[in-house]
Simulated scan of single mutants.
Amino acid sequence: MGLSPVAGGSTVDAVLDQLQAQVSDGSWPVGERIPAEHELAARLGVSRPAVREAIRALTHVGVLEVRRGDGTYVRSSADPRPLLRRVARASIRDFFEVQLAYDVQAARLAARRRTDADLARLEELLRARDEATEADAFGAADAAFHLGVAEASRNPVLIEAMRFFIDRLRESLRDIRLDREVPEAGPAAHRAVLDAIAAGDPGGAAWAAAAVVEPTLAVLETLAARDGVER
């Protein structure tokens, strides 16, 4: 079974389905290097970012393995799509619970390992986050700051895990901005995270990162209990 152009645009799910089909039917056996990102994009008629996100998702669940400077290889023939669909159906509360765990550890490690270049970049990301007003732009800017903290941690597993969840996190943050019942952490709370990272204070950075997420998570818990539904 060969690759064919994706109908209706460059959706990541459609790209992921075609890549997984190549693995499942044996066209790409375990141990084989798959075509380069630019070649896949051309054959599927989609953007390179769509291919990149699909590869990242399949890498995160162990189907593919990216070897820096060498290419991407098939690691397993298992089909992860049922798992990915469950992730896609997860509630906002589910994602904030995961974000709490990731953000706390990312901030702690970033305070130990950040460079001057990291601090300069985080300042820019925080400024963009604080200046964003429209919901979609805010979600993207807030998620970019959280990812920037993870990247400053220098932990490749944590960074890839954050990248895997970043699209859904972006959507969750956008939804929070649109939902007047759910509070969002403001500039001061995010500034406290960056200040602690800049000061090289792991404990303070972890505490500040938790303080960003926990108030929103507490309200989501209360609303879920009140409404009897997952948010």
Rank of each mutant, 00 (worst) to 15 (best):
Thr115Ala: 15
Ser27Leu: 03
Ala132Ile: 00
Val66Thr: 13
Asp201Phe: 07
Arg127Tyr: 07
Pro183Glu: 07
Val182Cys: 05
Glu124Asn: 11
Ala50Lys: 02
His38Asp: 11
Ser4Glu: 13
Tyr73His: 12
Gly45Tyr: 02
Glu124His: 07
Ala36Trp: 11
Leu122Arg: 07
Gly148Ile: 02
Ile159Lys: 02
Arg174Cys: 00
Ala135Glu: 01
Asp201Tyr: 03
Asp13Gln: 14
Leu158Thr: 02
Arg48Ser: 11
Val15Trp: 08
Glu65Val: 15
Ala150Trp: 04
Leu169Gln: 05
Gly71Thr: 04
Gly148Asp: 00
Asp175Pro: 05
Leu173Ala: 04
Arg114Leu: 05
Gln20Cys: 10
Ile55Met: 15
Arg52Asn: 06
Leu16Glu: 15
Gln22Ser: 12
Tyr73Ser: 07
Arg114Asn: 15
Gly45Gln: 06
Leu19Gln: 08
Ser47Cys: 08
Leu223Ala: 09
Asp116His: 12
Arg75Cys: 10
Ala211His: 04
Val219Met: 08
Gly71Ile: 00
Gly204Gln: 04
Asp94Met: 04
Ser24Trp: 04
Leu158Ile: 05
Ala205Val: 09
Ala140Pro: 01
Val23Leu: 08
Met162Val: 14
His146Pro: 03
Phe164Tyr: 13
Ile176Ala: 15
His146Met: 02
Leu178Ala: 07
Arg180Pro: 08
Gly2Tyr: 06
Asp70Thr: 14
Gly45Phe: 00
Ser91Pro: 08
Ala110Thr: 05
Arg168Ser: 13
Glu230Pro: 11
